[in-house]
Design a protein around this nucleic acid. Structure first.
Length: 858
DNA sequence: ATAGGGTTAG
């Protein structure tokens, strides 16, 4: 085997050789004498040459070790190795192997260290108590459990079990490989044999921290303190992040006090960890005191402060420190830049974030990395800055190859952010193209979730559900397990579509799977929302009642639910409960409470609440509260009161206010005020189809056909198209969608036949078709065709055909329900054996035995 | 051994 390690060719330098010869000529020819003055690599090589020439390499047993030592100290490891390979194995010379292996470990080349070890074994050497810790460290660096465990075996064979250094190295190695059971086992053996020291405890704590088990780490730390082991700097640096992430202020302060008493605060690392602990506990002033008192600071200290300020909302202070860093010429690193970029990004300042990014790239001293790009993309997403987002995407595409070489997971993270950015900038189709181009193997739960979330919030909710089924079904390459985020997004899509059946399935899935406590709260809140929006507020209440933990969102969601379903008194009861439970009541709560009052016609209660809000809670009414009040009076037909309210507003009425008034004018047929409201809306630039449709409906109610025609003409001219009315219903076989006069459904004939029968039946009961309404929602070419049926009626007929008797029929309409349909359906609820639950764009209507829950407040 | 990042709700 020795031939593998040939001595590299020596460079021939005549001049040097001469100089060398003259200086050593007088000395006796022994290895010790000759090597005395050898320092540089070239000189060592010349010495090696001389040794060989004089035959010392074979005659003097100290010659080769001397050369190895010199090669190592002149940083020529390959020469050292080649020379070492010529030495006969002996325990006293293992030291040189250890030096080589240590060097490799220190240079963070664990593979090289382990290769050296293999060579060593092949050449017949055995490791000693120093070799093994280095090797174990290399295994931990990789990390490689397999190789670490095999070295553990060797430890046992060679009898190094009770060597503290080896034991500590084993604990650390297993900890780094994430196998805490093995680490614990070795650690327990060390405790039993009383060989455990501070380092052993520290390694155990570090292992738990690395695996994210900070609670276990803290337990271990206090067990150590209980065992009368004094924590050292490393112990503190290990445990402080646990206090930080757990917001354990008391324990953190205790550690700070200990560091002060022992003088460990002066350690830079300890100081940094304390600053970070206070920053994470949002005690920025305490953090600042420690930071200011630090004799030595480095970029980490500054970064901890900057991110602390940024994340506690004191962004100006963060920027101030950032500028100070630049002034004091602190070498900024990628973390500094990323923190500032993330600070802007989190506040929705995508443009500023991009500007700092450009400065960073311009500086050229630190390369943007995954964190930088991800923060930046989230900033663009938040600001809806599509163009800037594209710029970052381009940069990312160029960078991604480098990133991918390091860690593919990181590259995927950037791509996930790119997809999210496009989706949030309302470019779902671009997002989808990026998504489709990701190799299915690399799609992770976040990749799916951002795409699903994009659809459920900005795009077509049906696409979200479609994608969700692809995600969880086997027919795709591999099913991905949805997490709480995914579930929330899917439930949001269900809410939008009132897809109760799928929503229930997701509910079942949630019950079967265990989620983290904080996730459960979030998911339960989405379930409440889903049940409320799908028309089953009672089940929403059951979910609410079964929650082990609720927050403001849970209460307000349910409150909104009672409001939408016209159960105003229950809403007010819940509001009382909310106050009793001591939940924070804010402006949003009152919007919801007032909304509930207006949708149930509780005018006096609403007025009362409005007063409570200002007088008891000191909340200054915002424009949204005034909109609710206008709606409250308007729905109840008190249009003058509504107008009075508008006049009393201290701010300019927003479009919402005028829409509320306009809607009321439609229900209560007030042409004059309706014209006024729509004039205001047009002034505000709200020229949408809703405005025109409402106005046109008001004219139609008042039989002012010329004005109806004028509005239609206006809409044609301005190119504003009325969104087609559309209703859907969940039948036995799936969801069926209908447009006005829709005859495309396979059951179309049956549907129209049934509808005809029902019409005859209810006409006999006194129903008079209101032909005014027939004109509103139809397209021009269908005008005058009295046989055309509105989508909600078609959906109802389909629902009756496919729903078992006694089971409620749930219909959802994208626009407000038509007045004639409302009357017709009220009658129909008298002749069929179903409750009819209809969600329109304004509220829920529960039709039962000839009554509607809206009681006219729609 | 210390600092930074992506997906969810009223």
């Amino acid at each position: 085997m020795r031939h593998r390690f040939s001595i590299p060719q020596l460079p021939f330098n005549h001049h040097l050789q001469l100089t060398f010869s003259t200086t050593t000529a007088a000395a006796a020819a022994t290895a010790a004498n000759i090597s005395q003055k050898c320092t540089s690599f070239t000189k060592v090589q010349l010495l090696h040459q001389q040794f060989t020439v004089k035959g010392l390499t074979s005659s003097d047993p100290t010659a080769l070790p001397k050369l190895v030592s010199l090669y190592i100290s002149s940083d020529a490891p390959s020469h050292a190795l080649a020379t070492l390979a010529l030495l006969p194995p002996s325990p006293s010379s293992v030291f040189w192997w250890n030096s080589l292996i240590r060097r490799a470990v220190r240079l963070r080349s664990p593979h090289h260290a382990l290769d050296l070890f293999n060579t060593m074994l092949t050449l017949g050497w055995l490791p000693d108590g120093h070799t093994l810790p280095f090797l174990l460290k290399a295994c931990g660096e990789l990390p490689s459990f397999r190789r670490g465990a095999s070295i553990h075996t060797l430890v046992c064979i060679l009898g190094f079990n009770h060597n503290v250094f080896v034991g500590n190295a084993l604990v650390a190695m297993y900890g780094r490989c994430g196998d805490l059971d093995c680490a614990h086992q070795v650690f327990d053996e060390m405790l039993d044999s009383k060989t455990a020291d501070t380092i052993s405890w520290n390694s155990m704590v570090a292992g738990f921290m690395k695996s994210g088990e900070s609670e276990k780490a803290v337990k271990m730390f206090y067990r150590m303190v209980g065992d009368r082991i004094s924590p050292d700097a490393v112990s503190l640096v290990n445990i402080l992040p646990a206090f930080a992430s757990g917001h354990a202020v008391t324990q953190g302060k205790e550690a700070h006090g200990y560091a002060l008493r022992t003088g460990l605060v002066r350690d830079l690392f300890v100081g940094n960890a304390i600053v970070d602990m206070y920053a994470k506990c949002e005690l920025m002033d305490d953090a600042r005191k420690v930071f200011d008192g630090m004799e030595v600071k480095d970029v980490v200290s500054w970064n901890a402060m900057v991110t602390g300020y940024s994340q506690t909302g004191r962004f100006e202070d963060a920027i101030g420190l950032f500028e100070k860093m630049r002034g004091e010429k602190v070498a900024l690193n990628v973390v500094t830049w990323s923190a500032v970029i993330a600070g802007y990004a989190q506040r929705g300042y995508g443009y500023e974030a991009l500007d700092v990014f450009r400065q960073m790239v311009g500086c050229g001293s630190s390369e943007p990395n995954v964190v930088t790009l991800v923060s930046l993309l989230s900033g663009c997403a938040c600001a809806g800055a599509l163009r800037n987002g594209k710029e970052v995407h381009c940069y990312a595409v160029k960078q991604i190859l480098n990133i991918v070489n390091n860690d593919f997971g990181d590259g995927q993270m950037v791509i996930n952010s790119v997809i999210d950015m496009y989706a949030k900038c309302k470019a779902e189709d671009v997002a989808r193209r990026v998504f489709d181009r990701v190799d299915p193997v690399n799609r992770n739960v976040v990749t799916w979730t951002v795409m699903i979330g994009g659809y459920s919030q900005h795009g077509e909710a049906n696409d979200a559900l479609e994608l969700f089924s692809q995600m969880v079904n086997q027919n795709n390459n591999k099913p991905t397990k949805p997490n709480a985020f995914t579930i929330s997004c899917v439930l949001m899509a269900c809410s939008r579509l009132a897809a109760l059946r799928l929503g229930k399935q997701v509910h079942g899935y949630v019950l079967r799977r265990r989620y983290e406590k904080s996730d459960v709260l979030f998911v339960d809140n989405c379930l409440i929302e889903m049940y409320v929006k799908s028309g089953d507020v009672d089940v929403a209440r059951v979910v609410f009642n079964n929650m082990s933990q609720t927050n403001v969102v849970s209460w307000t969601s349910l409150l909104t639910g009672y409001g939408m379903h016209g159960r105003g008194l229950e809403a007010l009861e819940l509001f009382t409960g909310m106050r009793k439970a001591g939940l924070p009541i804010d402006g949003v709560t009152f919007v919801v409470v007032l909304y509930a009052c207006s949708h149930s016609g509780l005018v006096d209660k609403g007025l009362e609440c409005f007063e409570t809000m200002t007088q008891e809670f000191g909340i200054v009414p915002g424009v949204e509260h005034y909109a609710c009040m206008v709606d409250l009076f308007g729905r109840a037909g008190k249009l003058e009161k509504a107008m009075e309210m508008i006049k009393k507003m201290p701010m300019e009425p927003s479009p919402v206010v005028w829409v509320a008034l306009l809607g009321s004018c439609r229900v209560h047929t007030n042409v004059e005020l309706g014209e006024y409201a729509s004039k205001k809306l047009l002034e505000l630039g709200c020229e949408n189809d809703g405005t025109y449709t409402l106005l046109s409906n008001i004219y139609a109610n008042a039989k002012r056909w010329k004005d109806v025609a004028r509005i239609r003409f206006l809409m044609k001219n301005t190119g504003i198209k009325k969104r087609p009315g559309c209703s859907w219903v969940e039948g036995r076989t799936g969801t069926a969608t209908f447009y006005v006069g829709d005859k495309s459904h396979p059951l179309s004939e049956e549907i129209y036949d049934l509808l005809g029968e029902l019409m005859d039946e209810i006409k006999a009961l006194g129903y008079v078709p209101d032909t005014n309404f027939a004109l509103h929602d139809v397209d021009d070419e269908e005008k005058g065709d009295f046989l055309v049926e509105h989508s909600e009626k078609l959906a109802l007929a389909y629902g009756i055909l496919t729903t078992a008797p006694g089971v409620p029929i749930r219909i959802t309409k994208n626009l407000r329900v038509c007045g004639d349909c409302h009357v017709a359906i009220t009658y129909i609820s008298n002749v069929i054996d179903h409750e009819i639950i209809l969600r329109d764009s304004s509220r829920f209507h529960h039709f039962k035995k000839g009554c509607c829950s809206c009681k006219g407040y729609w």
